[in-house]
């Protein structure tokens, strides 16, 4: 649900990073936070466990500049990846405008990726969204790992609607902004259609 405020001329878009545990969701938004212009970013809120695992969500507000005289602001959220936090994941998808699915390229995580996409489809549906039509980007993260599966294989297993697919090494910042931009493009294009 995009919140368009004609009084303050603002558009707020909620983008959710989804994916299995430890795939690099938090790393994506941490990198964005670190390199963003100080006056454009708000505080990075992380509700994490003692061991830095996301407990409820990470949240980063970003002021992006203006489009057609409207201030565009992104609200970036990550979900906790572990299977047992499903109730929390469902809540965070509430009213989202777009999804960035972060896949872990390591061979051993391929099943976890597939399960997480299935879980995303279910949770989106429960929130009234359709995974086939909501703005959606696939990020193949951890491309630097020696055990990374070939891109073609990951595409065959994980890409299902011709969505933008971006290779990334999130802890080095590679592909991070490109991914966000691909999501932003889809969300803003969606606005003109609706």
């Amino acid at each position: 649900m995009t919140f368009i405020n004609y009084a303050s001329r603002e558009i707020n878009c909620k983008i959710v990073y989804y994916g299995p545990g430890l795939c690099g969701k938090t790393t994506n938004i941490q990198w964005i936070y670190e390199q963003a212009n100080p006056e454009k970013k708000g505080k990075l809120v992380s509700l994490a466990t003692e061991t830095d695992r996301t407990l409820f969500f990470d949240f980063l507000p970003l002021d992006m500049g203006t489009v057609k005289g409207f201030k565009v602001r992104f609200h970036l959220y990550t979900v906790p990846g572990q299977v047992f936090y499903d109730a929390s994941r469902k809540l965070i998808l509430r009213g989202c405008d777009g999804i960035i699915f972060v896949a872990d390229s390591q061979r051993a995580r391929m099943e976890a990726n597939i399960e997480s996409i299935a879980n995303l489809a279910t949770n989106l549906k429960e929130n009234g969204f359709d995974i086939r039509s909501i703005p959606y980007v696939l990020q193949l993260n951890k491309r630097d790992m020696p055990s990374a599966a070939p891109v073609t294989e990951m595409e065959r297993l994980l890409r299902f609607r011709g969505e933008p697919m971006i290779e990334a090494v999130a802890n080095q910042g590679t592909g991070v902004i490109e991914t966000l931009k691909a999501a932003a493009r889809q969300i803003l294009m969606e606005l003109q259609r609706s």
Binding site: M64, G65, V67, K68, F70, L188
Partner: peptide
């Protein structure tokens, strides 16, 4: 019948500009 959306003509350049 929606009011005229101001976003009916967003271009790729608009989006590039958002990302500086």
């Amino acid at each position: 019948s929606r009011f005229e959306s101001p976003f009916s003509e967003i271009t790729d350049e608009d989006i590039d500009r958002l990302f500086g």
